[in-house]
Design a protein around this nucleic acid. Structure first.
Lengths: 207, 207
DNA sequence: GCACCTATATACCGCTCGGTATGAAATGTT
DNA sequence: AACATTTCATACCGAGCGGTATATAGGTGC
């Protein structure tokens, strides 16, 4: 019944038991969406990667869009956890540095696909009416809002030089983060992006 | 006769004359690719926007991929002309400013689609073997190489503070430019991006 | 007028897409 | 053993994709 439990307790099982683990299947689906984008990820690719058939996918996850949203949840929970901890850094500079280093590790690593799932999905989904795109853009906006709030606090605490608009500075940082995603997806050279991040941090306003 | 002449002289015409202007048709195709990306732009959309039929398209432009490459040529010639002039600015800061302002005008304007065609195409084309993606990424690399060269010259001229690596600084700038493309495509608020660009220029190293 | 050449319009091709109908297999319940 | 319930495997659906075959229309050269 709709993907059922992932939490501890074993649910009452009636009828033929499921032969796959929804969590690992979802993780496999995430990888496909991450490498191919929402629209380019076909059901054939997804089901093959997940090791299940189409009817199983639909019975467990609803449809392609619902599957994507669940994969996006998993992505934010597992892969973007560094954002939450970065925002807790004591200084604005520390926040920026943790965000940049975290993005580098997450989007340029060796084990996961390159680039940011959110950027890939929002840029690639260009349908006139596209709830996927709106969904992703909305999540990004709320994430940026948290960063703005953090920088406004830093501004109030005298942690940022007064002439700088904290809102614009936050936007500047997220712009770099999204640009890094584009670059990570294009060239597979993490060392170069390391230098890029270092350069950006070297011009970042301190105190 | 493969799209034939666009230059002045009227070519020798034998057989039924073409009923459309290849240049304006190509401009229409460019708009479609720009708003939808290469893969999402269907032949139905393209032919409707161009005002021609599929056989006419294939006779004049070859196929979808060839059409895209010609549209990309037109794009770089008409829409990215600001890059060439920006590189001629007397200072590194001037180069950066002209690139950022030019990108803002081009990718956030009211008359053209938002975002950068190159970014949209490279991010959205995720096929295992994708010559479109490689093509776009290669063009971007050559463009970035020119910027690096320009900044190395600026560095030699003492136009950049010595501790900064001109290569990394160039990469930093192009990262922001690509990030701006992502943002321009997502939110339709040029005023906010204006502030973003201002913020970036305010932290840009001077002398 | 006629042959020749090229662009047009229409209909079609094989293929893949997201999604589903159907029947068999595997469990718990009685 | 018989049934209810749920999952699995296969085959299938209509629609849209990029691309093309065919026949007709519209010109020039003779």
């Amino acid at each position: 019944m709709k993907c059922s439990e992932s939490s501890a307790g074993t649910t009452i099982t009636r009828g033929r038991p499921r032969e796959f683990d929804p969590e690992t299947a979802l993780a496999a689906a995430l990888r496909v969406f991450w490498t191919r984008g929402y629209e380019n990820a076909s059901l054939a690719e997804l089901t093959e990667a997940m090791g299940i058939t189409k009817p199983s996918l639909y019975a467990c996850f609803g449809n392609k869009e619902a599957l994507f949203r669940k994969a996006l949840d998993l992505y934010e929970r597992d892969k973007l956890a560094y954002i939450g901890t970065a925002l807790e850094a004591p200084t604005a500079r520390g926040v920026a540095e943790k965000l940049l280093r975290g993005a580098l590790a997450t989007h340029c690593g060796t084990s996961d696909p390159h680039g940011c799932l959110g950027v890939i999905s929002s840029v690639a989904c260009t349908n006139e009416v596209d709830s996927i795109r709106d969904h992703v853009v909305a999540r990004r906006a709320s994430s940026e809002a948290a960063l703005i709030e953090r920088f406004e606090r830093a501004h109030a605490e005298g942690d940022l030089p007064p002439p700088v608009d904290p809102r614009a500075l936050a936007s500047c940082l997220t712009t770099v983060l999204q640009g890094l995603s584009v670059k990570a997806q294009g060239c597979a050279c993490p060392s170069e992006l390391q230098g890029t991040v270092d350069a950006f941090l070297s011009i970042w306003p301190s105190k």
